[in-house]
Design a protein around this nucleic acid. Sequence first.
DNA 1: GGGCTGACGTGGC
DNA 2: CGCCACGCCAGCC
Length: 107
Amino acid sequence: MMNAAAQPSEATLRAEVYDIVRQIPCGRVLTYGRIAALCGLPNHSRLVGRIMRGASDADLPCHRVVNASGRLAPHYPAQAFLLTSEGIRLTPSGKVPLKEYLWDPEC
DNA sequence: GGGCTGACGTGGC
DNA sequence: CGCCACGCCAGCC
């Protein structure tokens, strides 16, 4: 056996989520739901969000993770700045146009 | 064991 | 495009 993401828990998911987020290319974004789905947990987007909250910046580009609407994370003011610094142009309302910047890992 | 919370998602207006 | 209600589920008190 090798993959054991059958047990939903922050502890189990953390490693996978970290690994995926680390692979997001510069200038691209992923959604919480997409990350959860990639880990085999379609309805655990909130768990992913919780993990990101507890995740210290370090080498983790957590600013490249937004919700399914392209809305940026609350309590994370620097995110907009970091995204725009990577060339991402936000809408006037401060959201990420997913049609342009959503990253597809299988692409 | 029980109830509230939340870096979410979808659908309706 | 924005706001709201409902559904979802692990984590925390």
